[in-house]
Design a protein around this nucleic acid. Structure first.
Lengths: 193, 193
DNA sequence: GTCTATAGATCGATAGAC
DNA sequence: GTCTATCGATCTATAGAC
């Protein structure tokens, strides 16, 4: 699969960078930690990301956003079977966030002032997720106003489930909360679709 | 109300410290920022908190916990009118978190590794909130298992609403989500109480 | 393109004048 | 008890050898 042309190793460092940012936060992720996480020296990191930590985080966010667009948003936006799409979304999200052990890097950025530099991207991520899910519910027959309310509740609820699961150190709370959210959404489309 | 005895000014610095920790996070809240927020020099801060930042955060958490115990947990634990208690809880919480503009310092601590030093207190906060709310719902006639599930959902949902409102820069999303949570709880007790 | 060495700034924390 | 001055450590970022 590897081509001879271009595509430096910058891309392959992103998952490790993302994990370090998730675990330590933007301010807490020192270059020493990022170097250790990627196995690259500081010199190599600055070779790939001349803009330093901020450029690293930008690249990580773009990478994460790409995953969500392809795996979560697009399937919802081009849905043909709403119930199946919703079930798939919760399965994918549960796996992605490791049942809440893994922090949502986008959500956590919005919580403190260090993330203000990325506020546009943070906002767009949630806006698109909510509207994509609302569209899916509408296709399933839910009234537009209800679809938007329930989508907001579900996306918000997933973020809360991550916070709670991390605080309690308990995956099962994440799974219970997410399962209830899923049931609420499926009810809304089976009731009207 | 001010007594001549003891009670240094340590206590009065806590609200400003709390706001600085909320806005910048634990790592992001530098001593310069904490000094500016409180109006105290570093020397004074270390006079009140010999243990430095960690002791400041401990004191802030104890202070926050005290507020929640008195205002939120105890009324739920000694409830006589469940519906009124639930309504009061959501009113108080909405005001406290400024409709989601204000970060929950306890929840945010659980999200990254810097908060591990406070993990016991973080966990106990959420455990007590959930169990206090569940007790209230049981008094209202909800079956114990349902009461626990709904309490978990509500406490988690409030955290998610903060994350979403901050990300979107939109108070109204917090209010919509919290209103739905409140309705769900009130339904559960009116249905069975 | 990788590393080590290091600059310059800022960090948490301390010392000491008042 | 308050401040200013300053310590050593650590931070981000750069320079330069290989």
């Amino acid at each position: 699969m590897s081509s001879k042309r271009a595509l430096t190793d910058r891309e392959s460092a992103l998952p490790a960078l993302a994990e370090a940012f998730r675990e330590h936060g933007f301010e807490g992720a020192t270059l020493a930690a990022l170097s250790k996480a990627t196995g690259l020296g500081k010199g190599s990191l600055y070779n790939f990301f001349p803009g330093g930590k901020e450029e690293m985080m930008e690249a990580v966010l773009e990478n994460v956003d790409g995953w969500f667009v392809n795996t979560i948003f697009l399937p919802l936006e081009h849905v043909v079977d709403p119930a199946a799409a919703i079930t798939a979304m919760f399965d994918d999200v549960t796996a992605y966030f490791r049942s809440g052990r893994r922090v949502c890097i986008v959500g956590s950025l919005g919580l403190n002032s260090a993330g203000e530099a990325f506020s546009v991207r943070v906002k767009e991520y949630f806006v698109r997720w909510i509207s994509a899910l609302a569209h899916c519910l509408e296709v399933g027959g839910a009234p537009p106003a209800l679809a938007l309310d329930l989508s907001e509740e579900a996306v918000s609820g997933i973020q809360g489930a991550i916070v709670l699961a991390r605080a309690l150190g308990d995956d099962t709370s994440f799974q219970r909360i997410v399962r209830r959210l899923q049931s609420t959404l499926l009810d809304a489309i089976s009731r009207s679709g």
